[in-house]
Amino acid sequence: MMQSAPVLLAAPAPEAVDVGVWDILLWGALPYIVLAIVIGGTIWRYKYDQFGWTTRSSQLYESRILRIASPLFHFGILAVLVGHLVGLVIPRSWTDAAGLSEHAYHIMALGIGLVAGFGTLVGIVMLIYRRRTTGPVFMATTKNDKFMYVMLVAALLTGLGVTIISVFDTTPVDYRQTVSPWFRSIWILQPDVQAMAASGIGFQTHALFGMALFAIWPFTRLVHAFTAPVHYLFRPYIVYRSRDSKDTAGMVPIRRGWEPIGTQDRARGSTRSRTR
């Protein structure tokens, strides 16, 4: 009986590199430490700090800049996350089987990635400017918020830097043969340390900042992303006051508080003035 060949989720690295102790710690152990912090920290935050599970909105203090910066950042970061998932999860063999050439894939990923990355960066810069120049918003900014912004900007800048350098680099490192196999191998508990070690300093720096950002995620206002208000789309309508006339039929008319209330003396005075 013939057995089908196993499907490899992680392709070998393009070039064999020496794997040291630091490579094992960073790309073999650290991802699982970050996962444990994210899961455990989220459970702890939900159990002991539900009232703090909020974005601490400051729209009341300033809305002109926020009206532009917030959608720009949120839609941009959403596109960035989707792009990362597509690039890291989908193997190259799948896109080749779908008829998408490697050149077309990179052109598409480069265009979408640059637009989404710059949009997100502009949005977060506007948010930081607003928070720094608007007095009440700045007063409500904690050290936790400042550290969160540093990690966000660092992750964005390193990602954009790697993307821009790949345009001018004559021999760029293919992340689909290095970073992507390493990412997929983490979830099958067989981390491909050698693949990530061959990815280069740019991808490694971006990965470290990304893991640092996820490690602090449950302990910052970013945690609100785990509870998006999706149920708002399906909740029933709330009726505050009926406009149907039959609902008010037979009811005693309500006397409004601002209507003048007359007295007997005032009524007599008005009668005398009419008789005169």
Results as ranks from 00 to 15, higher is better:
residue 251 M to V: 11
residue 208 L to F: 14
residue 245 S to F: 03
residue 238 I to P: 11
residue 196 M to Q: 12
residue 180 S to N: 04
residue 239 V to F: 07
residue 218 P to Q: 03
residue 205 T to L: 15
residue 202 G to L: 15
residue 222 L to R: 01
residue 222 L to G: 15
residue 256 R to A: 02
residue 229 P to Y: 03
residue 232 Y to L: 13
residue 196 M to W: 11
residue 247 D to E: 14
residue 203 F to P: 03
residue 236 P to V: 03
residue 251 M to G: 12
residue 246 K to W: 02
residue 217 W to D: 04
residue 246 K to D: 11
residue 181 P to M: 01
residue 244 D to L: 07
residue 206 H to T: 09
residue 232 Y to Q: 14
residue 180 S to K: 01
residue 189 L to A: 13
residue 185 S to L: 04
residue 247 D to W: 05
residue 180 S to H: 02
residue 244 D to P: 12
residue 197 A to R: 00
residue 239 V to H: 08
residue 225 A to Q: 06
residue 226 F to I: 07
residue 167 V to T: 10
residue 225 A to F: 08
residue 207 A to F: 00
residue 163 T to V: 09
residue 183 F to N: 02
residue 165 I to K: 11
residue 192 D to K: 03
residue 192 D to V: 05
residue 262 G to P: 07
residue 222 L to E: 03
residue 206 H to A: 12
residue 189 L to C: 08
residue 237 Y to F: 04
residue 191 P to C: 11
residue 260 P to I: 07
residue 227 T to L: 06
residue 223 V to W: 00
residue 258 W to M: 05
residue 215 A to K: 02
residue 193 V to W: 02
residue 163 T to M: 12
residue 242 S to H: 11
residue 259 E to V: 13
residue 240 Y to K: 13
residue 169 D to I: 00
residue 248 T to K: 02
residue 219 F to P: 11
residue 198 A to Y: 06
residue 174 D to H: 02
residue 214 F to P: 11
residue 255 R to E: 06
residue 174 D to T: 05
residue 187 W to N: 06
residue 262 G to D: 14
residue 211 M to K: 13
residue 183 F to R: 05
residue 174 D to P: 08
residue 211 M to G: 15
residue 174 D to G: 05
residue 199 S to K: 09
residue 192 D to R: 11
residue 255 R to I: 13
residue 258 W to S: 15
residue 222 L to A: 13
residue 193 V to R: 03
residue 205 T to V: 15
residue 242 S to E: 14
residue 217 W to K: 00
residue 255 R to F: 09
residue 210 G to W: 01
residue 216 I to T: 09
residue 233 L to R: 11
residue 178 T to K: 03
residue 171 T to E: 01
residue 195 A to N: 06
residue 257 G to C: 07
residue 184 R to I: 09
residue 226 F to Q: 06
residue 257 G to E: 10
residue 207 A to M: 11
residue 206 H to I: 12
residue 246 K to L: 08
residue 253 P to S: 00
residue 223 V to I: 09
residue 205 T to W: 01
residue 230 V to G: 09
residue 193 V to D: 12
residue 231 H to V: 15
residue 180 S to L: 03
residue 229 P to Q: 09
residue 240 Y to E: 14
residue 240 Y to A: 10
residue 196 M to T: 11
residue 208 L to D: 12
residue 187 W to K: 04
residue 222 L to C: 10
residue 169 D to C: 13
residue 196 M to P: 15
residue 247 D to G: 00
residue 224 H to Y: 00
residue 250 G to F: 12
residue 229 P to E: 02
residue 164 I to W: 01
residue 248 T to L: 08
residue 250 G to C: 05
residue 245 S to D: 14
residue 252 V to L: 03
residue 165 I to S: 15
residue 241 R to H: 15
residue 168 F to I: 05
residue 211 M to W: 06
residue 173 V to A: 07
residue 185 S to C: 09
residue 178 T to Q: 01
residue 172 P to E: 05
residue 259 E to D: 05
residue 180 S to C: 10
residue 202 G to K: 00
residue 241 R to C: 04
residue 205 T to Q: 13
residue 200 G to V: 14
residue 207 A to K: 02
residue 198 A to T: 09
residue 225 A to G: 08
residue 252 V to Q: 06
residue 217 W to L: 15
residue 257 G to V: 11
residue 165 I to F: 07
residue 197 A to Y: 04
residue 233 L to W: 02
residue 236 P to L: 10
residue 202 G to W: 04
residue 181 P to Q: 01
residue 211 M to T: 14
residue 186 I to W: 09
residue 163 T to S: 07
residue 218 P to I: 04
residue 243 R to T: 12
residue 169 D to H: 04
residue 210 G to M: 02
residue 220 T to N: 00
residue 230 V to S: 13
